[in-house]
């Protein structure tokens, strides 16, 4: 993994740090997490997590089921005590004593909305406004409902709402106290594509209003679409960075070469080209791992022409974040088998 230039711009999303270590200057971040670990008995939920999230940032925790995402959110939200490590949440050190104080500054939307189904939307929100000891309750409820486009459903009983609408009520509930950090645990899990799209749009509009969001998801396109930075988690943090940079920096570049017939001695031929780092035979030709496709492609073509090979095509392979992700998860699966 290559380390990025250490420019600390005013915008924290500018610098893509490779698994940053938390230094003493935690003052200005929404979340500062240092070596945080949670064990359930001898089962490890997450291990030695260290990262920072800046104010105004949308930070994604991406990982498969069982990666420890929910447990991490609950731990940062003071519902669960960490086994070891430390964290600062919305400027307050994460300790048992500070639980209530931390919870008053953040809000959490759990995986399932958890509404009182016999109460109306407004009654649900009224209860939570009381729990946050808010004043101007009616105005705040109005604003929260407007933020999720639910003004006209205020008097509906929650039990009569669809899953997507319930999720939006839960989001309105999480917005009531103007949280310094908004935790969203798999906000679209179980929603149909239309409802998912609506929730995505809502998150994007919160993002443009500068709300700090910590979002977990097992879906790549969601992380890619919504997040300024993504951390890939599978019990431990595997990678952290901007979605585009993760793709760029971390996936090996390669060329796909298609030939009419296989080469007599591909090892010697590709070995002689400096830009090629490795090769692999495919049904229709070869996949070459290269340092820079723009330099490698002409050199490879020259070498192939020299041995009279019939070149059908030569193209640079494009990899999505999904490839990076699957590759990382794969490594983990192999590691576990060992």
């Amino acid at each position: 993994m290559t380390a990025p230039p250490a420019s600390q711009g005013p915008n924290p999303t500018e610098s893509v740090s490779a698994l940053p270590s938390v230094d003493g200057s935690k003052g200005d971040c929404a979340l500062g997490v240092d070596q945080l670990t949670k064990h359930f008995g001898d089962r490890v939920a997450f291990d030695h997590l260290s990262f920072e999230v800046g104010y105004g940032e949308v930070f994604g925790f991406l990982g498969p089921n069982g990666a420890g995402k929910t447990t991490a959110v609950r731990t940062l939200g003071t519902l669960i005590a960490p086994t070891s490590g430390s964290a600062v949440v919305a400027g307050i050190p994460l300790t048992l004593k500070n639980g209530s104080e931390i919870r008053s500054r953040i809000s959490m939307m759990p995986e399932s909305p958890g509404l009182y189904l016999r109460l109306t939307v407004t009654e649900n929100l009224l209860c939570f406004a009381g729990l946050y000891e808010l004043d101007d309750v009616r105005k705040r409820i109005d604003r929260a409902l407007r933020a999720v486009n639910l003004q006209d459903r205020a008097r509906d009983q929650c039990g009569s709402l669809s899953k997507g609408l319930r999720q939006r009520v839960a989001l309105a509930r999480a917005l009531l106290n103007d949280p310094a950090v908004l935790f969203l645990d798999e906000p679209t899990s179980g929603l149909d594509p239309v409802a998912t799209r609506e929730v995505h749009d809502l998150i994007n509009s919160l993002r443009s209003q500068g709300v700090t969001i910590f979002l977990t998801t097992h879906r790549l396109e969601e992380a890619e679409r919504l997040c300024d930075r993504v951390a890939i988690l599978n019990t431990t943090l595997r990678l952290i960075g901007r979605p585009a940079d993760l793709r760029q920096q971390l996936f090996r570049r390669s060329l796909d070469v298609r030939l009419r017939s296989p080469l007599d001695d591909p090892g010697v031929l590709f070995g002689a080209v400096g830009e090629v780092e490795g090769w692999e035979q495919t049904p229709s030709g070869y996949t070459l791992t290269v340092t820079d496709p723009d330099l490698a492609a002409p050199a490879v073509i020259r070498a192939l022409v020299r041995v009279d090979a019939d070149v059908l095509s030569i193209v640079e392979s494009h990899h999505s974040l999904e490839d990076v992700y699957l590759e990382l998860i794969d490594e983990d699966v192999e590691a576990k088998r060992r």
Binding site: S100, S112, G114, L115, L117
Partner: peptide, 14 residues
Amino acid sequence: EQGTLEPILSTPIQ
């Protein structure tokens, strides 16, 4: 059972 305990306990309530 109805999943409302976690949201309640996520508020400042002691």
